[in-house]
Every structure is written in structure tokens, then in C-alpha cells.
Design a protein around this nucleic acid. Structure first.
Length: 290
DNA sequence: CACTTGACCTGTCCGC
DNA sequence: TGCGGACAGGTCAAGT
């Protein structure tokens, strides 16, 4: 569920929380969640210092001294939560937080720093992973070498979107937006939201979209992602930021998870269908099929 | 080759 | 109350 705005929010949080800290210890239970050998960890992770935190698409990258980086993909249910030495929450944890005391039963990796603080990688469904990679190889990783342009960078013009889409004329536009080689960072929530904003039926084939519609769609993508970052991302079930807090975008969402509720533009009931294998929300009046 | 569907997992919710 | 099945949705692999 974490998409670009959620990973970006975590990146901002961790940038303030863990830069300059030194890794002292790492524990991991599950080779799928953390595949590196004990040897590599001892050599390149233990005693390394956090230099910076960055994001590319939905991937979070913690750059370390010693030329290695800790790369994390949260997939659907991953969380990266930082706790200082003293802060932990028992039964009465704050309501803007989803999680209590850590570790809990979904904790896959614990990175402990020399000041006693810890970074927890939680992942209920074990789809996500955390991996130690040579910094110079990070962008060569399978996923990152193929991923499309960043929609929030200044070079993302409507012409760029048009040209990326042109390679997939027969895909429904929603499927194209979800394809990370077309564009980086959009997932199910923000695909539905930006298509509503641009008044495009999610099933419309790419080749039937006018330049004008693509231009409008580009603007909506930029708007929706920007707003979501402002709101700290979307919390549906699992997502929390680096301090364990929920995001509030979903209370501003226009269609996502709003089946049967009135469209904020025209009042018609929002519909939910299945498209590209995903639950897809749209307004049947503003976004007519055709 | 282009596109669609299923697998990977676990927890939750719904109907019987 | 218990239990099977559908569903959640990011990405890769397998299938059409």
C-alpha cells in the first residue's frame, strides 16, 4: 500500500531521525525479508554510519558510510518505524499511531544504533524486503534499472507522460499508470484519485486519450501526489510514518474507498469495479466509459 | 511480443 | 461460534 507519498513521508522522517547514527547491531528472522549473509552484514552494516536517506519510486534507500546502502521495498504492508532508546508505547499508545510496543509479531528486522535507538522493519505479509547493496549498484537493481521517471521532478511534463504512455497504446489507462516502467511511484490509490481528477474512465485505452486529456492527467497526478505528501500519506490499514503515525490523505480522497458515496463534483454514487486486477473506484457520470 | 492473470503472504471480514 | 472463501494490492513469473 505504500506508494510514492507514503515512502516520501518516511524518507523525510528518517532523514531527521537517523542521519549520523552508527549501526551497532542487526537482527532479522526471515531470509525473505532480509536475505543478506551474516558476513556481509558484519562487514558493511555493523559500525557503518547513516549518511543520507533517499527515495526512488516506492523504494527507500539508506546510504551508509563504507559504500553500502540499505535498500527497502515496503510492498503492501511494510512499515519502517524509528524508536528512541526511551520511547516505546504500551497499552495506551496515542490514537494517531497504529502500533504499540515494538518489536511485535510482524517485526522482521531490527537495526539498533549506538545511542540505543532502533529502526524496526515490520511487514505483516512478508512481501517486502530490506537488502544491503553496494551503493554504486543500487540503481542497477532489477526494479530500479527499469523504473520510469519521477512524477514530482521538474522534468515531468505532459509531453513526457505522453511519450511514456505511447509505448502502451492498448493498455487501459489505469493499468498503464500502475506500470512502474511507465511512471514511478503511482499505486492503486493515487491512480484512482488522479483519473477522477482528470475525468477519465480508468478502463479507457491509452490510444484513445487526446493530448488535452493527457495534459490534464499529468497535472492531476502532480496535484494528488503533492497533496498526499502534505497530508502525510494515506493510511488504509497498515501504513505509518517513521514515527509510527498514520497519514490523513484518505479523509481528502474523492473516490478511493468511497463506493456508494456521492461524487464530490456531481453527487452521483461512486462505483467500484475490478480493473487490471485491482479494486477501481470512479464516478460513472464524470468519468463515463467510452 | 503485448497484455492478463496468478503467486507470493497474513489478517480481516462476510455469509452460512 | 466456527469455518471457508473472498479480499486487500506491489511486483514478478507464468500463461494466453
Amino acid at each position: 500500500m505504500p506508494e510514492l507519498p507514503e515512502v516520501e513521508t518516511i524518507k523525510s522522517g528518517l532523514s531527521k531521525l537517523i542521519v549520523n547514527k552508527t549501526v551497532r547491531q542487526v537482527t532479522a528472522d526471515n531470509p525473505k525479508s532480509f536475505p543478506n549473509s551474516e558476513d556481509l552484514v558484519q562487514h558493511y552494516l555493523i559500525n557503518a554510519e547513516v549518511i543520507s536517506v533517499q527515495r526512488r519510486a516506492k523504494v527507500l534507500i539508506i546510504n551508509l558510510s563504507g559504500d553500502y546502502s540499505l535498500v527497502t521495498h515496503l510492498k503492501m504492508t511494510g512499515q519502517l518505524v524509528y524508536r528512541s532508546r526511551t520511547a516505546n508505547f504500551g497499552a495506551g499508545h496515542p490514537t494517531d499511531s497504529l502500533i504499540g510496543e515494538l518489536p511485535d509479531k510482524s517485526t522482521r528486522v531490527i537495526v539498533s544504533f549506538s545511542d540505543g535507538s532502533k529502526l524496526f522493519f515490520n511487514d505483516q505479509r512478508k512481501f517486502g524486503w530490506m537488502c544491503l547493496v553496494a551503493t554504486s549498484d543500487v540503481m542497477k537493481m532489477d526494479f530500479l534499472s527499469k523504473v520510469g521517471p519521477e512524477p514530482l521532478e521538474s522534468g515531468f511534463t505532459w509531453q513526457v507522460l505522453r511519450d511514456r504512455l505511447a509505448k502502451h497504446p492498448n493498455l487501459p489507462i489505469k493499468a498503464a499508470l500502475l506500470n512502474q516502467t511507465v511512471l514511478a511511484g503511482i499505486g492503486n490509490i493515487y491512480a484512482d484519485e488522479s483519473l477522477w481528477g482528470a475525468k477519465i474512465y480508468p478502463g479507457r485505452l491509452v490510444k484513445t486519450l487526446s493530448a488535452r486529456k493527457i495534459h490534464r492527467l499529468r497535472d492531476e497526478i502532480v496535484f494528488v501526489l503533492g497533496l498526499a505528501i502534505q497530508k502525510g500519506g494515506s493510511t488504509d490499514k497498515n501504513y505509518v510514518d517513521a514515527e509510527g503515525k498514520k497519514g490523513s490523505y484518505l479523509s481528502f480522497a474523492r473516490v478511493f474507498r468511497r463506493e456508494h458515496q456521492p461524487c464530490p463534483r456531481c453527487g452521483a454514487a461512486i462505483k467500484k469495479i475490478r480493473l487490471a486486477g485491482r479494486g477501481t473506484h470512479f464516478c460513472p457520470v464524470c468519468q463515463p466509459p467510452r
